[in-house]
Structures are given as C-alpha cells and as structure tokens.
Design a binder for these strands. Structure first.
Lengths: 118, 118
DNA sequence: CCCATAATTGAACATATGTTCAACTATAAG
DNA sequence: CTTATAGTTGAACATATGTTCAATTATGGG
C-alpha cells in the first residue's frame, strides 16, 4: 500500500506525460521477470561458468579446477543455473557433466561480452 | 589465496579440456565488469526507470509518481544509474530532468525485454 | 528574508546473496 | 561390506543491496 507521505505532493509535474508513460509501463511481473533474467548473469562466478561451458561440456570437478574455487561453491551456483534452465546435465558413472541449455540467454551473454570488449 | 583444501583432489578429470578452457577463460576483471554490467539491469525498479525514460524525459517527481514509489528511493536509484553513465540529467528551475544516456545498455535492455516477451 | 518545494544524501534497517564448512548421498572398486 | 571419490545440500556467516526516514541542499516566490 502506498501512503504517499513521501511521494511528491504535486503528484505529477506533467500529468499528460505521466499518464502516457504509466499506460505503457511494464507490469510488476514483467519488471521482476526481466530483472531476474539479468540477475542470472549478474555474478562473476556464474558468468565464468557460462563462459567455460560455452566451449566445452565439463564435470563439476573440472569447472571448480578451472575457476580455482571449491566444488561446493560451484555446485551451489550450478543449482541456480539448473533451476533457471540455463544448464543441463548428464550423469556418467560418478561424474556429472554440465553443458549449456539456453540459446536465449547465451545471446544476451554474448551481447554483454561484446559491449565490455568493444 | 586458494588453499585447495576443498578443491577436488584429482584437480582435473580431463586435463586437456581444463587447460584449453583456462587459456581462453575470462579474466577476473572481465568477469566482474561483465557481471556489473548485468547488475545494473538486475533490479525491477531500475528496469522500470529505464523503460520509462526510454519514451520520455522525466523529472524525479514524475518518475516517482509513475512507479508509485518515494522520491528518495527513486533518487537513490537514479544516482546508481548516473554513476554507471546510463542516464543524464538537466536542471530547470527546481526540477531535475532525467533521460537515457547509453545506447549500448539500451540494446541489452531491449534484448532482454524481447526474450521475456517472445 | 522567510517559506515552500524539488531533489539529494547518510544512517539505519531488513532482506538477499555467495561462500564456507560439515554432513550427507550416490556410485564404483577392492 | 567397506572404502574412496564425485557431487549435493543445509546451516552459518559475512557482505551487498534496496527502501525508509530524517536531515540537508538548492531554487524560486511572496
């Protein structure tokens, strides 16, 4: 609930503009969904994992080795990526091999990578 | 410093793969830079602000009105967007008008928007 | 000069997030 | 069956993040 006690009392300087923008504004659901999408890529460990998996299918142990981090930390992050359907996995004996499973986010990832590297 | 006490002892299941991936791996700096870029868009309030400003130049008061949030909360977020050079502003009398100032991130933003709306 | 309004700022607060540690499951070898 | 290894998980912990609240700055009107 919005009590407006700290919201600008004029409510709007340009009511016409305000009404127009409000009409096309993202819904809360859209804004949350959109920001959650970006959140997946908003962590250096996860960007490294995604980058690593973009060239090779890898087991948890090797990802940990490549990033110089604990298997546990990597496993926790892989769970997040799994829940977001960004990676898929395949079991073979005692090993679990991970690979990318989302062409969409990969595009977004590469778009971001191009931006910082330009 | 990495003590390796919890890192897989085998160090690598497939040393060839591991070495190859490590060679092309993002640097810490790149990974942090990349994830920081995505972090800017990883908050629903900021995505709404960016969306609002993509159609109109707006003063702080009107942005607050559109989002139904306090002027203070919006101002704090605008400072973040300003520091990241995502928005620029212009003073007129007592008002401060904000507008977008980064074509790059806007592309990334729209890419994300397309993904969730497809 | 005094007051009202637009906006910014810092501190406090609650919540979210990422890593560590230890315990646990699953699989395979002897 | 026992042991070793790969991986997962939950709790604890520290840190980061976003909003609120109160105080402050900046601008303009009477």
């Amino acid at each position: 609930m919005n009590t407006h006690h700290d919201v600008c009392q004029v409510r709007s300087v340009d009511k016409k503009k305000v009404r127009a923008v409000m009409k096309s504004m993202l819904t809360d659901q859209e804004a949350v969904h959109l920001s959650e999408t970006f959140s997946v890529l908003a962590d250096p460990t996860r960007t490294k994992i995604i980058y690593a998996l973009s060239s090779e299918e890898l087991c948890v142990c090797d990802i940990a080795g490549i990033l110089g981090m604990s298997v546990s930390a990597i496993s926790h992050q892989l769970r997040i990526l799994r829940n977001m359907r960004l990676v898929k996995f395949r079991k073979e004996a005692k090993m679990v091999y991970y690979s990318l499973d989302d062409a969409h986010i990969t595009t977004l990832f590469n778009e971001g990578l191009n931006h910082i590297r330009e």
